[in-house]
């Protein structure tokens, strides 16, 4: 397999822009993105707080991320590294979040279940981009031109606050899901699963078993 195709994506992205992306493409972003994870979801979706920005000012791009940032002299923010956090934990908020935020791009770590793409992302016309590595904190930090705003810093703390970043050549990210709900991780997982049974062949089971949700090693635990 060859190296991924590389592409620049201007935000907010149109449906046509997203339709052009293929699973496994490497994407670099220009425009605005914002961070939002469980703290922001709870505040908006469970406590009813109003989103501080209209959708058109958010780049329609929700980054599952907590930056390493601190307030410098004169109130400007210094952003060091930027790394995503695992997204599967946030699936339960996504349906409502798409409706309220107008997001069509979710950026994070590790993607969500293929079923979530089909049931939540496809109806919203949204796709998922995964960070690379994980932990390209320095490369992504370089792509942040400016902290445009930060909301709920006092209430939610640095890690959970809603940070709005102006970004340029921000990446790389890999296209994990497309507009039809296909998943790169699911495709790769299927290749690996083909080999798993042979790894365990000949290894006897332990004397004491364990309760658990799955004993099938081709399952995912997310």
């Amino acid at each position: 397999m060859s190296a991924p195709a590389q592409t620049r994506l201007k935000l907010p992205a149109s449906r046509d822009d997203l339709a052009r992306l293929r699973l496994g493409d490497a994407v670099y972003i220009d425009g605005v993105v914002y961070t939002g994870r469980e703290g922001v979801y709870r505040r908006v979706l469970e406590e009813g707080a109003k989103l501080p920005l209209p959708p058109e000012q958010t780049g329609r791009a929700n980054f599952h991320c907590s930056p390493a940032a601190s307030a410098g002299d004169g109130g400007a923010y210094k952003v060091g590294g930027v790394t995503a956090t695992a997204s599967f934990r946030f699936a339960k908020w996504m349906k409502e979040w798409f409706e309220i935020s107008g997001a069509n791009l979710i950026i994070g770590k590790g993607g969500m279940r293929a079923r979530d793409y089909r049931e939540l992302f496809v109806p919203a016309g949204a796709i998922y981009l995964t960070t690379v590595g994980y932990g390209t904190g320095a490369l992504l930090g370089r792509g942040i031109r400016r902290v445009r705003d930060v909301f709920w810093l006092e209430e939610l703390g640095n890690a959970q606050a809603m940070w709005v970043f102006e970004v340029e050549n921000f990446g790389p990210f890999l296209v994990e899901s497309d507009l039809s709900g296909n998943s790169l991780f699911e495709r790769e997982g299927a290749r690996i699963n083909a080999n798993i049974e042979s790894l365990y062949r000949g290894l006897k089971s332990p004397a004491l078993g364990r309760f658990g949700e799955t004993g099938d090693r081709t399952d995912e635990v997310i």
């Binding site: 991320c65 907590s66 930056p67 390493a68 060091g80 590294g81 930027v82 790394t83 956090t85 590595g133 994980y134 932990g135 390209t136 904190g137 320095a138 490369l139 992504l140 930090g141 370089r142």
Partner: peptide, 17 residues
């Protein structure tokens, strides 16, 4: 590339401390 960028910029290689 990320390790090189972190050392050159003196910024953390990963934001998750």
């Amino acid at each position: 590339d990320n390790y090189a960028a972190a050392s050159a910029d003196r910024r953390p290689m990963c934001a998750d401390t």
